[in-house]
Design a protein around this nucleic acid. Sequence first.
DNA 1: AACTAATATTCGAAAATACGAATATAGCAT
DNA 2: ATGCTATATTCGTATTTTCGAATATTAGTT
Lengths: 113, 113
Amino acid sequence: MQDALRQFKADFFQALAHPTRIAIVEQLRNGELSAGALIERLGIEQANASQHLAVLRAKNILINRKAGNQVFYSVRDPLIIEVLDIMRRYFHAHMSEVLATLKAIDKAEKIHR
Amino acid sequence: MQDALRQFKADFFQALAHPTRIAIVEQLRNGELSAGALIERLGIEQANASQHLAVLRAKNILINRKAGNQVFYSVRDPLIIEVLDIMRRYFHAHMSEVLATLKAIDKAEKIHR
DNA sequence: AACTAATATTCGAAAATACGAATATAGCAT
DNA sequence: ATGCTATATTCGTATTTTCGAATATTAGTT
């Protein structure tokens, strides 16, 4: 029973464990957007976007509303935004490490060019 | 640059995207525990525990302290506990769905026996 | 009915993750 | 040095995730 609850939580985290999916949720912070608008803003493949949206839907992080031709997505529960806000504080608190990571990536990119 | 930051966030969620790792962090809610104590409480393989601890260490979610023979783990930043608390509220808010999931699992288990 | 636009699903291949078994390392006691 | 306990790492394999290409679906338009 406890196990199933943890699995449920793990699934939630899993849903957010991808940069594109985080970007999607961040875009929806201030309200709904159509799938097309998300694709345009994120500059990703249509199929890929649809797959990630499917993941977020399956884990009940997003809800969608059909309007004629298009589908509008929004974050289901404001608590999710709250989680991301806390994360923001978390990253702020550990900014030095984030910067170290960024510098390492930057360095690696320079080498590979 | 924004991408790298999102990757960083995604890594954090990825680190928590496993029931065993959530269980580990929950066990450490009230302070440090040795690896052995964690293994005993969670009833998992030693190697497996060590692998999960390595993941949590790599993502800077846990810190460890060596004391003679053993290694004590603790949650690095209380903000992480705060995130889990918010999650608790989140799951409480959506308890009906959690229960539906649990029932479905229970049903599946009955069929498979 | 045929056509177009918006979105979703399927497929196959590549990469990442998870597990237990086996092995390695490190500290302490004899 | 040998042995013992606690923890970490490596290895092989099975499963899961991710992506783009191709295809399907659904709604609106002519």
